[in-house]
Computed example of a mutant assay.
Amino acid sequence: MSKTAENRPANTEKSHSANLDTANEDESASESSDTIALPAHVAGSGTLDQLIDTARDYAKAATAKNTNKAYAADWKHFVRWCRMKGTEPLPPSPEMIGLYLTDLAAPAGPSPALSVSTIDRRLSGLAWNYAQRGFDLDRTDRHISSVLAGIKRKHARPPVQKAAILPEDILAMVATLPYDLRGLRDRAILLLGFAGGLRRSEIVSLDAGKGDTPDSGGWVDILNDGAVLTLNAKTGWREVEIGRGSSDKTCPIHALEQWLHFAKIDFGPIFVRTSRDGKKALEARLSDKHVARLIKTTVLKSGIRAELPEKDRLALFSGHSLRAGLASSAEVDERYVQKQLGHASAEMTRRYQRRRDRFRVNLTKAAGL
């Protein structure tokens, strides 16, 4: 190796890497971890190249797939904005990022203003992308923190919550499904998602057994009294216990067993696509978007909130409606609901409870008034 290469300043390499990243802004955020490489003074080898590939896989797995997609979109939007303003995204400029946040909250053009939560997420996406490129973004810099605080003070609104799917709703929804193979699958998805308070990504990531597939997000153990779901969720590994229902018609475990039996699934992804005629289970795992579409479709067919226009009914419900439904319907100690949903705090669980006795504990009377 020449002296020139040995004595090359570190910031020169960073600048070169930054230029490459800027040129490839259309690549996904997870692919920015491809910058993981050997130090310049180390000679490559087959063994080290294998380790680099493995390290890149770990780097991609550090954040959820949907988070990676969102951060990639955030970076792409910011790069385009910078070029339209005649500036460059690298290195990070707190002044320019402050102006970017301002334009998101109060755009001068035809673009709609973004919500405070979306702006906050965009900033997190930029910080993550800068970190992948070897830069630190100081979010406490006054050009960023002061602008963001002002945006929150002026534009913050209470979070818009999706409607909860209540027990009578879920029964009406599953009643719209046929008893063909596809209907058995979708019935299991709705009942299991509701009884487990599961995220849509947790539902479709389940495998029949431990370690069946590389992209598994957990597995199911079916027992006499119910099923235990071991999930690798965004908050870490947790177990979800789902007991059997009072009848086969409403039992999530019976619905799951029916699907597994007729689909002939004993290995790999549990919830998979079916053939066009709905008579054969395929190998491809379902997308989590299927759960959202399934909920909206069955809500419309079942006549839930029929007094509202169709557009409003569709906007009311999403994948989170299943989690909110369990939290709002289970009349047990709040701690059990918190555990089932995998929440770190009781306050987060209460956000999911659309109906509850808010004054069950009356501190006014307890204080003697």
Rank of each mutant, 00 (worst) to 15 (best):
K60C: 03
D248K: 14
S302P: 05
T230V: 09
K279D: 10
D120H: 08
L177E: 09
E95S: 12
N66I: 01
K301V: 03
P167N: 08
P167A: 11
D103G: 06
W259M: 10
K85A: 14
L90Y: 13
D74Q: 01
N24C: 12
G325T: 03
F271I: 10
T87H: 00
L184I: 03
I165G: 01
P252E: 10
K264S: 14
F271S: 01
T364Y: 06
P91A: 05
C251G: 09
G86M: 10
A73I: 11
V361L: 15
W81V: 00
R182C: 08
Y352A: 05
F267D: 13
R356V: 13
D333T: 03
V42L: 11
T22E: 15
S28A: 12
Y130A: 04
A367F: 02
V174P: 01
P107R: 10
Q258K: 09
R323N: 07
T4V: 11
E13K: 10
Y58R: 10
H143P: 04
D138E: 10
Q161L: 11
N24T: 08
D333E: 13
L48W: 06
L314I: 15
L316Q: 09
L99S: 11
L198I: 05
Q50Y: 00
N24P: 02
W259R: 05
P110Y: 04
G217D: 01
G134H: 11
E257M: 14
R358N: 09
H155L: 08
S201D: 13
V220S: 05
A5R: 13
I222S: 03
